[in-house]
């Protein structure tokens, strides 16, 4: 199973390297959205810094949605999905690899990019650690929940329109705890509580959501 996981992850990275636009687009979109927020507010406005965690989280969420519908689409269209389901160990290793690839190419760059963008919004440097930790724990959840939604809609036409409606309500707790950790740090409180909750959600998501995505992919054949 590890061999299939490694091969599938390598394949994801290889395809991404040949389609640089696909994974450069979300960070670029993130940069533009957050910069527009900074430009729209008054310079050195403390209100802007107060809202910064929410802006950074919602921006990351919307950016991660941009290339989500393509997660399983190509494999569904070209028939690779069928071969995945007929593999000796089933498709689960490939599903994990595809979700890992989505985070490595989407969520991780967004989490790292959030640091300079947070400074642009006037977030104190003492809050950056909590913000980064929250994003590093939360962005994999974007990939997991988004992957599940992408699997549910893979056989449907115009899935890209349906995806945000499915993902945004499910991602609510992640945004609440992620932004909450940064807000707590800004208020001088301990941010560990929301971060532990985020970590718990991530463990739960890692165990359950790839299985749910696999079941949803199987339904796409019917």
């Amino acid at each position: 199973m590890l061999r299939a996981f490694a091969a599938a992850l390598r394949r994801e990275l290889r395809v991404a390297a040949r389609h640089k636009g696909d994974w450069l687009l979300p960070p670029l979109f993130y940069l533009i959205v957050v910069t527009l927020f900074a430009l729209g507010g008054k310079p050195n406005d403390p209100q802007l810094a107060a809202f910064a965690p929410a802006v950074l989280w919602v921006g990351a969420l919307l950016s991660a949605l941009l290339n989500l519908d393509r997660l399983f689409r190509a494999d569904f269209d070209d028939g690779t999905l069928e071969q995945m389901f007929l593999a000796p160990h089933g498709p689960i290793a490939v599903v994990y690899a595809k979700l890992s690839g989505h985070w490595l190419l989407g969520g991780l760059p967004l989490a790292l990019l959030a640091m300079p963008l947070a400074l642009q919004l006037g977030v104190p440097s003492a809050v950056l650690g909590s913000l980064l930790a929250g994003l590093l724990l939360g962005t994999p959840m974007l990939s997991l929940i988004g992957g599940f939604a992408a699997a549910l809609t893979v056989g449907l036409p115009r899935a890209a329109v349906l995806l945000p409606v499915l993902v945004l309500p499910l991602i609510g707790p992640v945004v609440i705890f992620g932004a909450g950790a940064a807000r707590a740090a800004a208020a001088g409180l301990d941010a560990a509580g929301p971060l532990y909750l985020l970590a718990s959600l991530l463990v739960l998501g890692l165990c359950l959501l790839p299985l749910a995505a696999t079941a949803a992919l199987r339904n796409s054949f019917d």
């Binding site: 190509a74 028939g79 071969q83």
Partner: peptide
């Protein structure tokens, strides 16, 4: 075991 060859060729065009 079996071999399955559907209508689709299961080939990624970028690879």
């Amino acid at each position: 075991g079996l071999h399955w060859l559907g209508h689709k060729n299961a080939l990624n065009g970028d690879l």
